[in-house]
């Protein structure tokens, strides 16, 4: 009896639809994952979180909610306007600027920090744009990118602030991280300029 039941089950399979990609929710996850698995976005965002962790709590709290909004605005523009090569160069320079600021480990004037957060969000958001998408797919994709920006930078800022304030070696580790990020950016910028002759993706 069991054999017949097994045979019956095998002969009457149905699509599982276990993956949300097939239910049009895939664009959300595509947006969520794009900046997280792309090193050219992930590393500067980590650097921005380290810079935020070095600021006083009030300044960081004011500026950080602006970052996902700036990323959303940038990604919306990047999805509607044509791709710009200079945006990729600015994003590469952000490695150096943000890494250098982490290395310097100095509190920034609040207005400058807000401008830095907005500029980083807009330029990286623009590079995360997806011109192929439209309608509901684009909305889901933008929601994913915005969520990634919020989650990544908020969590990493909290972690870096905790590290800096709670551990005696925390500030040294963060500054070393800034040095690594700036060094990586310096190398990749040179590769882009000298080897590829243009800003890579």
């Amino acid at each position: 009896m069991k054999r017949w039941l097994l045979l019956f089950c095998l002969l009457t399979p149905q699509w599982a639809h276990a993956h949300l990609v097939s239910t049009r929710f895939g664009e959300y996850y595509a947006g969520l994952l794009h900046p997280v698995i792309t090193l050219s976005h992930l590393i500067p965002w980590l650097a921005l979180a380290l810079v935020a962790g070095l600021q006083n709590t009030a300044s960081a709290r004011t500026a950080l909610p602006l970052f996902p909004l700036a990323v959303l605005a940038g990604a919306a523009l990047g999805s509607t306007l044509p791709a710009q090569q200079w945006i990729a160069v600015i994003n590469l320079i952000s490695f150096l600027v943000l890494g250098g600021l982490v290395l310097a480990a100095r509190p920034l004037p609040p207005r400058f920090f807000i401008a830095l957060v907005m500029a980083t969000g807009l330029s990286h958001g623009y590079a995360n744009g997806m011109p192929e998408l439209f309608g509901q797919g684009l909305v889901l994709y933008l929601a994913g990118v915005t969520c990634a920006a919020y989650l990544l930078v908020s969590i990493l800022t909290a972690a870096s602030h905790q590290l800096i304030t709670q551990r005696s070696w925390g500030i040294i580790a963060v500054r070393a991280g800034g040095s690594w990020i700036a060094a990586i950016g310096f190398l990749y910028l040179a590769f882009t300029l000298f080897v590829t002759g243009a800003a890579g993706s």
Binding site: A176, A183, F186, L187
Partner: peptide
């Protein structure tokens, strides 16, 4: 160790150039 990566990157840029 903080200075080393930056100077090493400068050497790397020389190699790339």
């Amino acid at each position: 160790p903080i200075t080393f990566p930056m100077v090493m990157a400068a050497g790397g840029v020389m190699g790339l150039a």
